[in-house]
Amino acid sequence: MLETRDLSVGFKINSGGKKAVLMAVNKVNLNIRKGDALGLVGESGSGKSTVGRTILHLNKSTGGSVIFDGQDITSLNRTDEKILRRRAQMVFQDPHSALNPRMTILRSVAEPLILHTKLRGPELREKVGTLLEIVGLQKQFLYRYPHELSGGQKQRVCIARAIALNPELLVLDEPTSALDVSVQAQILEFLKSIQKELDLTYLFISHNLAVIRYVCNRVAVMYLGQIVEQGETEDVFNNPKHPYTKALLEAVPLPEPGQPRRGKPLVGDIPSPLDLPRGCFFNTRCEKAMAGICDSRSVPNYLVENNRAVRCFLYNKDLQLEQA
C-alpha cells in the first residue's frame, strides 16, 4: 500500500559559516502492506520522524519516491495533496503541543471535518461527539481547552482528530513517549483495537522497542538515516541479525529483578550526521567491525531468510569466505 523507494531527505544548514547538507534520511526503502503495522525504530537523529513527515508532505524529499496505493505521491499538486491528506493522517509525539492552546477540543477535532466535508452546525458537533466517544472521552470535554486535559486525554483527542476522516494510513510519531506507562498501556491497547475495527494501516515511529514489539507486526531499525535491518517483528526481536539491533535490544533495561548482565553496552556516541563515517555508518561503534571492509566500502542490503533484510557485511557469504 505504501512504498518508499530510495527516499532521501537532506536539510541545508549553516554550520559555522559553511553551508552543508545534513542527510537525515538516506535511501530508505520501506514497504507497508494494507493492514500492516510497521514499526520504525531508532535513536534520536536516526531520521525516523523525518521519514514519517516526508511521507505526509510535511518535509520535502530530496531524492527517491513515495508510492501510495500505486500512485507516486512524491510531488503533488494542491488538489491531489488534499486527497492525500484525507487518506493519510498523522499523530504527533507531544499531545500537549499538537493542539492549538486557543481552540476548544470541539474546534480542534472539527477542523479536519470543516476542511474536507460539508458537515456544519449541530451535525458537526454530533460527529465530533461520536469521535470522542470512539476514543473514550465524554462529551463534556467538547468545550474544554487543551490545558485542562491530562496528557492521555489530549492524545486521545489527537487520535480522534486523526481518524475523523476515516483515513487508510496513520503515521504515529512516538504517540506514547510523552505519556506515563499506565496511560501508555491504555493508548496502545486502544490503538491496537481501532486498527482492526477501522481497518487502518500504521507506520509506527518510536524509540521504544517494547512498544514497537507490542503494536507492530513488522519492524525496521534505523541508524543515521539508513535502515539497517527490516523484518517480521518476532523474528527481529528473537534473533537480531545486525550488531546494532542486537546492541539496541540489549541496552533496554528490563523491569524485573535479577536481570542477567547482558552484552557490553555500545561504546561511544552516535556520529554526527554532518560527518558520517566512511563505509558502514555503524563501524565506529561496532564490535564486529572488519578492518579494511566495514570502514571503507558502503554496505548493500543482504536478504537473509524469511523476508528479512540486513545491511551488514557479516551476511555477505563471499566476504566471509574471503576472511576465513
Binding site: V181, A185, E189, L209, Y214
Partner: peptide, 17 residues
C-alpha cells in the same frame, strides 16, 4: 508492572490502569 510492554517477550495483553 502489568502496564509495561516487555521488550524481551512476545506481546501479551497489556493492562493500563
Amino acid at each position: 508492572l502489568k502496564s509495561i510492554p516487555h521488550p524481551g517477550r512476545p506481546p501479551e495483553e497489556l493492562f493500563g490502569i
